[in-house]
């Protein structure tokens, strides 16, 4: 009986130990920014939209920004609500992790929604005091997508009308000056 219990314990430990070694903390980005020093050197996971640019640098690293705010799930162009400024962190990852991803978020796109896991570097001595996440794995949670946007016809019509009015008034004042 004891042998069976011991064997079962060993199996359970074997299953748990590797997970403990890889244990990461899921951190909310807003909290991370306010408690940045507390996570220094820790392996953490953050969820958010990759946005801005993918900067593929000559040293093999790629830099981008990960935003974790309401706009990642409810973009303004899809009738999402305003909820303040963006909340994001800089991340750097090996180029191989980034190069096949959808375009980063911008006016026309919602960037890929990812879970990025890596080491949090706070005031990194090797990089002149920068703060960022050095990513080891990226898991794509949702693919990026293109937004539909179009001009408001009333705004466009009012614009054309006022430009024509301005041109007419300009022409009139020139005629008067000539007189």
């Amino acid at each position: 009986m004891m042998r069976r219990i011991a064997a079962a314990l060993i199996v359970v430990l074997e299953l748990l130990l590797p997970r403990c070694a890889m244990a990461t903390t899921d951190v909310d980005v807003e909290h991370l920014l306010t408690e940045a020093a507390a996570y220094e050197g820790q392996t953490i996971s953050v969820v958010g939209e990759l946005i801005g640019d993918y900067g593929f640098r000559p040293d093999g690293w790629t830099w981008t920004q990960l935003n974790s705010d309401s706009y990642t799930t409810a973009p303004l162009l899809e009738d999402g609500d305003l909820s303040g400024s963006n909340v994001g962190i800089g991340i750097r990852a090996p180029a191989s992790l980034i190069q096949d991803l959808d375009p980063p978020g911008d006016y026309h796109h919602r960037g890929p929604l990812v879970r990025a896991t890596g080491t949090w570097k706070y005031h990194d001595q090797d990089r002149g005091g920068e703060t960022y996440l050095e990513v080891v794995t990226i898991e794509v949670l949702e693919l990026g997508k293109r937004f539909d946007e179009s001009a408001d016809p009333i705004v466009a019509a009012a614009g054309v009308f006022l430009v024509l009015v301005a041109m007419w008034l300009g022409y009139r004042s020139r005629l008067r000056s000539a007189d």
Binding site: E149, A156, G159, F161, L162, V163, V165, G170
Partner: peptide, 24 residues
């Protein structure tokens, strides 16, 4: 960028119309 194109047109129209109106 279609929506901004329309809004810039409106802005230019207002600047121009108000400006020339003041110059009458």
């Amino acid at each position: 960028e279609s929506a901004p194109t329309a809004s810039f047109l409106l802005m230019i129209g207002i600047f121009g119309a108000v400006g020339y109106l003041m110059m009458q």
